[in-house]
Simulated assay, not measured.
Amino acid sequence: MLKNKKYSLKDIANDLNISKTTVSFVLNNKGDENKISANTQKRIKEYAKKNGYVPNQLARGLSRGKSETIGLIIPNISDTFYSKVAGVIEKEAQEQGYTVLFSSSYEDPKKEGKLIHSMLNRQVDGLIIASTQQNQKEIDFLKKEKFPFVLFDRYYPDKDTDYVVVDNYLGTKKITKHLLGLGRKKIGLITLKPGLEPIAQRLQGYKDALIDFDIKPEESHIVEIERESYFKEIENAIINLVSGEKTMDAIVFSTHYLASQGLRVLKKLSISVPKDVAIVSFDELSAFDIVDPPITSVIQPTNEIGSTAVNILLNKMNGAIHGKTETKVLETKLEIRASCGQVL
């Protein structure tokens, strides 16, 4: 035998003078149910291990009617939040014997729809999707076909689906109340234009925090900008909030990338944080704890989001949940740092 030979089921069967079917049953952990003796199972497993046998995942999947592959569709793999969650999903899936196919929709609903059907054509066993929330047709199709899928980060409030999200409302309410508790009373919000459920929830959390402190939310204190052009729009947004009579003493950024670009603009304008204006962010970048000053952030539990999404999907794929949808709303953590300043 060649030293670097790649062993197959047939090779093992021939070498041990055992049928290929018996070898297949044992290596797929079906030896007991097919009444194969413990001694035979031991011989096969030890021989396979000794010779470095690696199963052909495609053939193995086809024989079971499965591809042992999960499709993951996210807005953008370069976004730190989604890349973290994707890493957890990949690790959790691999531990369960599944490979993950990644694709980015770039917030394009048409592209997302095509990716869903492309994944189905590749015969993935299930899907995990951070949707644009503009693909009701595809979601309805998956539900009609009873195809296993789980949504995360975003979901469709009017549709009965499995999903994993965080409490965006409470997270933003807590971070706004923290500023109010420090004596900051004129708090602005820089956020994205409506369209996504998490953004709508963060806006409401901000407003309700002010109301709880008997402060009427002012529309002029809320700046909504386009996702595609936030890099250019955010300077005008900040100038609008920190100049003139309505100068804010704090700003809440509804996403980490808005906060990141906002910091660049504040530095460019020579506006001191937190002396002139306090800064807080929903979600964070890895550098937020080392910049000067470190940024107070609402931290999302990316490990729990990823592992929960995989577990729900596997339960659906394996028939552990019949007909019943499973939803999880996870808590965020408020990480208080120096960008809030002290009581005024």
Score class of each variant (00 low, 15 high):
M1Q: 03
M1Y: 09
L2A: 10
L2W: 02
K5T: 06
K5P: 10
S8V: 09
K10D: 11
A13Q: 09
D15Q: 09
L16T: 07
L16M: 12
F25W: 12
L27G: 06
N28R: 14
K30M: 05
K30V: 00
G31A: 04
G31L: 05
A38G: 13
K42E: 13
K49V: 02
N51Y: 13
G52R: 08
G52P: 14
G52M: 08
P55A: 11
Q57F: 08
G61A: 04
R64N: 09
G71H: 08
L72K: 03
N76H: 12
I77R: 06
I77E: 02
A86M: 08
V88E: 07
V88Q: 10
K91Q: 14
V100Y: 03
F102L: 15
S104Q: 01
S104D: 03
S105F: 07
E107F: 03
D108E: 09
D108Y: 02
P109T: 06
K114S: 14
H117T: 12
L120V: 05
G126E: 00
L127C: 09
A130H: 07
Q134R: 06
Q136I: 12
E138D: 14
D140E: 15
L142Q: 06
K143T: 10
L151W: 05
F152A: 04
D158K: 14
K159D: 01
V165I: 15
V165P: 03
V166I: 13
K174I: 00
K174P: 02
K174D: 13
I175D: 02
K177W: 00
K177R: 15
H178D: 02
L179R: 11
R184G: 05
K186H: 04
I187Y: 01
L192M: 05
L192K: 00
P194Q: 11
E197G: 02
I199R: 01
A200V: 03
Q201M: 11
Q201T: 00
R202D: 06
R202G: 05
Q204D: 12
Q204R: 09
D212N: 11
F213Q: 15
F213E: 13
D214A: 11
D214K: 13
V223L: 08
V223F: 07
E228S: 13
S229E: 10
E235K: 13
V242A: 06
E245H: 10
T247R: 14
I251M: 01
F253I: 02
Y257R: 13
S260A: 13
S260Y: 12
S260C: 06
L266K: 11
K268E: 14
S270T: 12
S270L: 08
V277R: 09
D283G: 04
D283A: 02
L285K: 09
S286K: 08
D289S: 14
I290R: 09
I290M: 04
I290Y: 10
P293H: 02
I295V: 15
I295S: 01
P301I: 00
T302S: 09
T302D: 07
T302R: 05
N303D: 14
E304I: 13
A309D: 04
N311R: 14
I312T: 07
L313R: 09
L313C: 12
L314P: 02
N315Q: 12
N315F: 01
M317T: 05
G319C: 11
K324N: 10
T327H: 03
T327S: 06
V329C: 12
K333I: 09
L334W: 00
E335P: 01
I336N: 02
R337K: 15
S339F: 09
S339G: 05
V343H: 15
L344D: 10
L344P: 12
